[in-house]
């Protein structure tokens, strides 16, 4: 599904290398988790994959189902099935959440040559999914993320993911800021989307999310590289002992 090879990324504005050779292979139907110390480059990886400005790929490749994502505009990546749930979702005053969602859904459909969703079908779909995530009608009417609490913003990201039905989902610390119940809701939202044809990359600091969303593979990122990969037990090890042992072992 997503194949990243030897990815090197530096900041465009300054001479600072952030990713220093990332290799990652995510198969369809699998959930991969990435953990790693603050500042190790996890968010940078997610931004580079989704096409944010400000980064320069100096080496390596990233292919989504055989297509070179690094060559695409952000909107083309989205239409190709890539989705990033932001660590810090952006507030957009003046743009209604509903309008935003519908514009996005239909823009992707249009780009893929599919028919647009009718207003009625769309409304039905949003209402059903919003209900599952306990997002009330008022939140749908408000401007995108404006005045949302931290947890509400994260739930709103998952709502977007549910509506857009991407094939490759990247979740950047979607668990941060969530209370115990919301964590469960969000995990259920993610689990509902788990399927044969869909891959997940879940960035997190905590084992707790991984109790709900059971990963197939866990990676540890440090200083711009994947330094260790393993099964779910790797996350438990981090939870119990921190990164010290792992980093010492690979150093």
């Amino acid at each position: 599904m997503l194949s990243i090879k030897n990815l090197h990324v530096k900041l465009e504005e300054e001479d600072k290398q952030i990713l220093k050779g990332v290799d990652l292979e995510i198969e369809a139907g699998k959930v991969h988790a990435i953990m790693g110390p603050n500042g190790s480059g996890k968010s940078t990886l997610s931004y580079v994959l989704s096409g944010k400005d400000g980064y320069e790929v100096t080496d390596g490749t990233a292919m989504l189902e055989g297509a070179d994502v690094l060559e695409m505009e952000p909107e083309e990546r989205a239409a190709a099935g890539l989705f990033l749930a932001f660590q810090y979702p952006v507030e957009i005053p003046g743009v209604g959440n509903m309008t935003f969602l519908r514009t996005a859904v239909n823009a992707q459909r249009k780009a893929r040559g599919e028919e647009e969703m009718s207003a009625a079908d769309f409304l039905k779909a949003v209402r059903a999914r919003a209900k599952e995530l306990k997002i009330d009608a008022d939140m749908l009417k408000r401007p995108v993320n404006v005045g949302f609490s931290g947890g509400e913003k994260k739930r709103n990201e998952i709502l977007q993911m549910a509506m857009l039905e991407p094939r490759m989902c990247i979740l950047d610390e979607t668990d941060s800021g969530l209370d115990v119940d919301a964590m469960k809701l969000v995990s259920e939202g993610v689990n509902a989307l788990r399927s044969e044809g869909r891959g997940f990359l879940v960035i997190t600091h905590y084992q707790r999310l991984l109790d709900h969303i059971k990963p197939d593979v866990v990676h540890i990122m440090a200083d711009g590289k994947i330094v260790k990969s393993g099964g779910p037990e790797l996350a438990l090890e981090v939870e119990n002992n921190g990164y010290g042992d792992i980093l010492a072992e690979v150093a």
Binding site: K52, E73, F86, V90, I92, T103, A104, V105, L164
Partner: peptide
């Protein structure tokens, strides 16, 4: 940031800019 957020959801740059402008 808002423009990138919209584009990352599949809204092309032109319509995304228009949406922000209308906002």
């Amino acid at each position: 940031d808002a423009l990138f957020y919209l584009r990352s959801r599949g809204v092309p740059e032109g319509p995304a800019t228009d949406l922000l402008t209308l906002a």
